[in-house]
């Protein structure tokens, strides 16, 4: 199974993708952090670069808010955020030293490490998956059982395992149709159901004029199988050279997220600023939805589900087992080996 993001990157180089990408490039321009007057002077700040998975959107609100409000500077970092995208393979950026930190899904990181990339987990931002399956009610999709034997669009690559696990857990065998980046096959009724992020595709379907009551929604995460998503990673070597920077990175990022959760209106305005600068073709209503939906997967809606910013050993184990079971990786590193968070004072 080829990796979608890598495929996208290569496709981009071919030139064909140039007119397909929803992201408008603005060269290699870096987004520099405004200097906080209260923070340490610029010459003692450590220059650090963080590369995200995708173009600016509310999925990364916490990082942009921390940058915009001078939180990274307060923690002694002179941070530069690079937008990601299919044309920018984050691991390449780390290996070539063009970025020190990257955001990654847990499943992606496990695959990277299985391929031999020496990654170190620094912080776990999203502790509960936003993956879901959306089905047409008028095509008879009301419960998970109804998916059996029907055409269901499923993402490829690192997004796939949770869906396969879901089908297995429900004892159903849908006719899996490979799903690309768009929701058009679903909208044009080429499939009865499709993969969706609750904070993204589900709302894009709504913004294509489909009412929520026309759709059946099945979330993949459960308390038993939370399927952590975005985390902050660096090369093992980077971490070992200066663990304090990793700590500052984790602390500042989580503080940014906390500020975004407490000031959603301001956070949305900051995200929209970066969205416009990067000419991302999205809209405010969608970014608002995305921020509202992503926050409960960062800060637990009730006490005891997880500790914000930290990866739970059990969740890690469940995810790793699932990956091994589906043959996506040969083996997963031990939890202590995988994450650096035990030695960090992650808030």
């Amino acid at each position: 199974m080829p990796e979608t993001e890598i495929s996208m990157l290569r496709a981009f180089r071919s030139g064909r993708i140039m007119r397909i990408l929803p992201v408008v490039l603005c060269g290699m321009a870096m987004l520099s952090a405004p200097r906080s007057e209260a923070g340490p002077p610029a010459d003692v700040l450590k220059p650090v670069t963080l590369i995200l998975q995708w173009a600016p959107q509310s999925q990364f609100a916490g990082y942009y808010v921390a940058l915009d409000k001078g939180i990274y500077a307060k923690h002694g970092l002179d941070l530069t955020i690079l937008r990601g995208g299919p044309d920018r393979e984050q691991v390449d950026y780390l290996l070539r030293g063009r970025a020190q930190y990257a955001t990654r899904w847990l499943t992606t990181a496990l695959e990277d490490m299985d391929r031999g990339v020496p990654l170190k987990h620094v912080a776990q931002v999203i502790n509960r998956s936003n993956l879901a399956i959306v089905g047409w009610k008028d095509r008879g999709i009301e419960s998970a059982q109804d998916l059996s034997g029907r055409r269901v669009g499923v993402w490829e690559g690192q997004f796939r395992p949770p869906f396969i696990a879901f089908f297995k857990a429900h004892g159903i065998q849908p006719q899996v149709v490979p799903q690309n980046y768009s929701i058009n096959l679903f909208l044009r009724r080429g499939v009865e159901a499709c993969s969706a992020m609750i904070y993204n595709e589900y709302h894009m379907i709504y913004q294509a004029g489909v009412d929520e009551d026309e759709l059946a929604l099945f979330t993949l995460a459960s308390d038993d199988m939370p399927l952590p998503e975005d985390g902050i990673y660096c090369l093992r070597e980077t971490h070992e050279r200066d663990p304090a920077v990793s700590r500052a990175m984790a602390d500042a990022s989580m503080e940014g997220w906390r500020y975004a959760a407490e000031h959603p209106v301001e956070a949305l305005a900051i995200v929209m600023k970066y969205v416009r600068e990067a000419h991302v073709p999205t809209n405010r209503a969608h970014m608002k939805w995305m921020l509202e939906k992503i926050l409960p997967s960062i800060f637990p809606p009730r006490e005891g589900l997880w500790e914000p910013g930290r990866l739970c050993r059990k969740a890690y184990r469940k995810t790793a087992d699932m990956m091994v079971e589906q043959g996506l990786i040969r083996r997963a590193p031990a939890f202590e080996e995988f994450t650096a968070q035990e030695c960090l004072n992650v808030p």
Binding site: P2, T4, S7, M8, R10, A11, R13, S14, R16, I17, M18, R19, I20, L21, P22, V24, L25, E156, V177, P178, N180, Y181, S182, N184, L185, R188, G190, V191, P281
Partner: peptide, 29 residues
């Protein structure tokens, strides 16, 4: 360069729908 054209709407939609399609409009870079 191993461009995987099989993931784009202009390829998948006619394949999966079995009919000719107009894609959604897009900006050509």
């Amino acid at each position: 360069e191993e461009y995987n054209y099989e993931i784009w709407d202009w390829f998948t939609l006619p394949r999966d729908l079995g009919r000719a399609v107009w894609t959604e409009p897009y900006f050509d870079e």
